[in-house]
Design a protein around this nucleic acid. Sequence first.
DNA 1: GGGACGATGTAGTGCCACTAAATGATCGTT
DNA 2: AACGATCATTTAGTGGCACTACATCGTCCC
Lengths: 302, 302
Amino acid sequence: MDERQLRILRELGELGSVTAVAEALLVTPSAISQQLRLLQRAIPVPLTERQGRRLVLTDAGQALAGAAVEVETALARARHTVEEFLGRPDAQVSVAAFHSAGSAFFPLLLRVLAAPGRPVPRLADEDVPQEDFPRLTREYDIVLGHRLDHAPPWPDTVATTTLLREPLDVAMPVDHPLAAKRRVTPRDVADQRWIAAHDGFPVLAVIEAIAAAAGRRPHLAHRINEFAVVAEAVAAGGGIALIPRWTMRPHPALVLKPLSGVRARRHIDALYRPERTARTAVRTVLTELRHTARVIQNAGPP
Amino acid sequence: MDERQLRILRELGELGSVTAVAEALLVTPSAISQQLRLLQRAIPVPLTERQGRRLVLTDAGQALAGAAVEVETALARARHTVEEFLGRPDAQVSVAAFHSAGSAFFPLLLRVLAAPGRPVPRLADEDVPQEDFPRLTREYDIVLGHRLDHAPPWPDTVATTTLLREPLDVAMPVDHPLAAKRRVTPRDVADQRWIAAHDGFPVLAVIEAIAAAAGRRPHLAHRINEFAVVAEAVAAGGGIALIPRWTMRPHPALVLKPLSGVRARRHIDALYRPERTARTAVRTVLTELRHTARVIQNAGPP
DNA sequence: GGGACGATGTAGTGCCACTAAATGATCGTT
DNA sequence: AACGATCATTTAGTGGCACTACATCGTCCC
């Protein structure tokens, strides 16, 4: 007893003859007759009976044809399930971000999505080395990752959208000798003690580029990834550091000075598997992330 | 997208690997893999993804697997529909009877089935010529028919159960000359005017047999099928008649005298298509008819 | 009765789900 | 680091089954 046989039985109940069913299903009457015989073989009571030269359903056949409607309904629903899954505007969308992007994007994203009928965000922070961001797209619909301006592009296993090109400024205590300058050069800062990120994190490469531009080797005093911790360490006189201009909340005891002569920028990119954009809700969140990026860039951190 | 592919998807969701699904469904992993590929071909977003060396469902796959459960549920219900149809003890059972059987059986049957959980009788009277009783089983689950003791048996296209072997007595007015006898012989009644049934109805053959036993030709004064009408005609002096002993309500102006020397009996049989006894409710009604027959035989008509 | 209509049986064909065996990928182990 | 074990997939080949074409049989209608 399979779907097709039930379909045939149902059509026979509604159309009232084998020939009519055959025409409706675009096959020969012989095929219908054979399938009915096969269906009958599995069932111990007659499902059909001759009425003159026509074939009609018995009571048992009508009972089974009724169940066949449920089967077809369930199958039709199954066939539409994927579309519905893709089309739901209020589905869950998981977004991962490294810390500073999270602190800047998540509040704005939560606010703009806090309405019925909008995607339901599932946010998570994931601070991983550069090369691990693409892998996170297995687990999250959208991953906010960062890389330096000149760094190799993301592997083409993932699709990407650049949300921000954010300058990295030199952070120092407000009473630092360099705090009087409008901008600083690699020569200005090459001999400073640096608070850098761990290996594999993008900020480190910029510090090395700055030192190289001044012909020195960088003095890496501390290795701290989290910018909020970095800021506190800088304020406490632990050294200077590179801090993103827009996504970090300003620290009252610090000043940020733009670097000249070295491209110190990081990209904040949205990484995702292309097929996930088939979901309306995912596309919506991507759009909102782009919009959020403009807000962040114009207004600075919240 | 067919049932099997959905089944495979569902199992993959629950078992978590192609090999496990293959073992569960008693096929090779290759078959599973191929079916998943076919299913995927019909759907624009990935349903599965590699997780290490295993294959697991994506969110879209899980959504579809959920719908697959509904499909399987509907199919399982369809597969049980026939059994349920057969097993329902309180289903409708249609019973047809010729007039006198109806007037005797129907009241008792209605009384014994008048309870929740018992078969719901759909009664009908059908007075047709002898050879038409089997045909009625197309339309009714059970048909009460009658035939004479020595008449040819019912065709074996129908199953039969004999409910009653009922004597046919000679009915006459209470003041008739023969009313003084305990029983009557063919010779006694051969010259009487008879009230007989129409051609094709069993009673007629008995009258002819009586006449033949006495070496006469019967004198058929009237042709009336319905025994209630016959009784009135006899009471009014229209002639004598054969009247069933148990299934006719006694008429106050008539007496019934047994015939000797001639087998004057009719069978009241239940005719039905064998497959209909697959239904519990039909078997129940057949049992109750047999029981009702015993009551009628012992107690006489109600 | 004869012709039209409807259902069914039979032989043959093409498709499809499956198996078997090889390949590729990943994991755990020593 | 290398190996075997495990898991998935691919390929070629096979058997079963749903279908078509054609013939036959029963039923209805004029």
